[in-house]
Design a protein around this nucleic acid. Structure first.
Length: 422
DNA sequence: TCTGGGGTCCTAGGACCC
DNA sequence: TCTGGGGTCCTAGGACCC
């Protein structure tokens, strides 16, 4: 059996841990740049606020209904996520951290003669007590069915956040009433396609012939259908595979026209990617740079371009990567446009101890590697952005809009919560 | 004024090889 | 009637996830 533990309205719950007066009130969290609504409390959902709605279109509505609005605070959410995951791993060590707010647990090797419901309740209570985050737990014979169980745990008021699906007949009954688009792996395009072919429920999908599913939904779809039948095809992945692509991109808070500002942004993004590379002990051989104007401003001249730069030798040294990224930018930058978004993408990633060296390209990488180690250690201890390359700039006229940012309660000493005695 | 960011996997088709 | 057959590698694009 697999359990899927999912934090309820995770970003909102993180904010509420440190602002308990918001319990029971409508709360939303915005995406980067305060752009879209990406997390909603149950009260906010009940008001009809949709996932992904642009915040500015809902401004009046949010004020009118006294919805608490937060900018996204990834330092806080990342740290709270780690706490939740550590708590879970202490109960069940066979854990796959699937996303910032979700984890699968493999219960097969959990101690003998235990009660699934009791275990799920125990997990729920302990995570709440140790971190303040409410979670829902779904348990079933496959990961896909555990997702279904979790969905039910959240939606059915009587279940109080726990749902165990073990009886085959019960599973069939559940799938009969589950809309096919609620199944993990069925997105909008597949929903349209399946509906057109008379498949509207998860049960109908489960009963579709293998060959037909494989033809139209690829092997991914076939795996999913087998999982619905109770055949486990998706194993628990305890070790996280290194990323195959690493990207840092941002929509700017203000439109950016001048080359200098763009250079600062690209250097910052490249530097950020380099740090991520080193963190997973990888090097990259391909650096791509891209820039866009704002497609929503239909009266403005539009331009977008990207440049892929193939390196002679894979590296994770910041100054090298920044140089290649800026070279790419130079090739695609055109004056006279108002840029809205830019980014750096690193691909062709290899483990750092398996770099194919170049016969004629000589860099003293040993020295740089030592330097990068020191830089990373300082950042880790003193906080991100403590030291940086001058080319990254300090003014950052392009930086995000984050008007409703909460403090970094758990990761910055100066932001630690103060309790006043009344 | 104002519309996020970061990933994965699969397939078809083109270029190339013998 | 009859255009060889069997591969690899790479990329773009499309689907999905949170």
């Amino acid at each position: 059996m697999f359990a899927l533990v999912d934090c309820n309205n995770f970003y909102v719950s993180c904010e509420r841990v440190f602002a308990p007066h918001l319990e029971g009130k409508p709360v939303v969290v915005l995406s980067n740049n305060d752009g879209c609504i990406v997390a909603r409390s149950n009260e906010a959902k009940a008001l009809g606020i949709k996932m992904g709605e642009p915040a500015f279109k809902r401004q009046d509505f949010l004020e009118q209904h006294r919805v608490a609005v937060f900018s996204s605070n990834y330092q806080l959410y990342g740290d709270m996520s780690e706490r939740v995951m550590r708590t879970l791993a202490e109960i069940v060590p066979e854990i796959e951290i699937y996303s910032i707010d979700e984890a699968f647990l493999d219960l097969r090797s959990y101690r003998k003669n235990f009660n699934l419901e009791e275990l799920a309740r125990h997990i729920q209570r302990r995570v709440k007590q140790w971190t303040g985050i409410p979670v829902s737990v779904g348990v079933a014979p496959t990961k896909t069915l555990a997702k279904v169980a979790n969905h039910l745990a959240k939606k059915s008021p009587g279940k109080n956040g726990v749902c165990i699906l073990s009886d085959p007949e019960e599973i069939t009954d559940v799938l009969r009433t589950l809309p096919v688009e609620e199944v993990w792996g069925i997105g909008m395009q597949y929903q349209k396609f399946l509906n057109k072919h008379g498949i509207t429920t998860a049960l109908e999908l489960r009963n579709a012939p293998d060959a037909w599913v494989k033809k139209h939904l690829t092997v991914v779809g076939l795996r999913l259908v087998k999982e619905l039948r109770g055949v486990s095809c998706l194993p628990l992945e305890m070790v996280q595979a290194p990323r195959k692509g690493i990207c840092t991109s941002r929509t700017f808070g203000n439109l950016v026209e001048d080359y200098e500002s763009l250079r600062e942004a690209i250097a910052t993004f490249a530097s950020n990617c380099a740090a991520k590379l080193r963190q997973q002990h990888s090097c990259t051989k391909m650096v791509s740079v891209f820039i866009y104007t704002n497609p929503f401003l239909i009266d403005e001249p539009q331009y977008s371009n990207c440049k892929m730069v193939l390196l002679p030798e894979a590296t994770n040294v910041t100054p090298e990567l920044v140089r290649y990224a800026l070279w790419g930018l130079k090739l695609i930058y055109k004056p006279g446009y108002k840029y809205k978004k830019a980014g750096v993408l690193m691909t062709h990633i290899v483990p750092e101890d398996q770099v194919q060296t170049h016969l004629f390209y000589q860099v003293d990488r040993k020295r740089y590697t030592a330097l990068m180690k020191s830089v990373d250690r300082i950042q880790q201890r003193m906080g991100k952005g403590t030291i940086k390359y001058a080319v990254e700039g300090t003014r950052h006229p392009w930086k995000l809009r984050q008007e409703r940012l909460s403090p970094q309660y758990t990761t910055r000493w100066s932001d630690i919560l103060t309790i006043h005695q009344c």
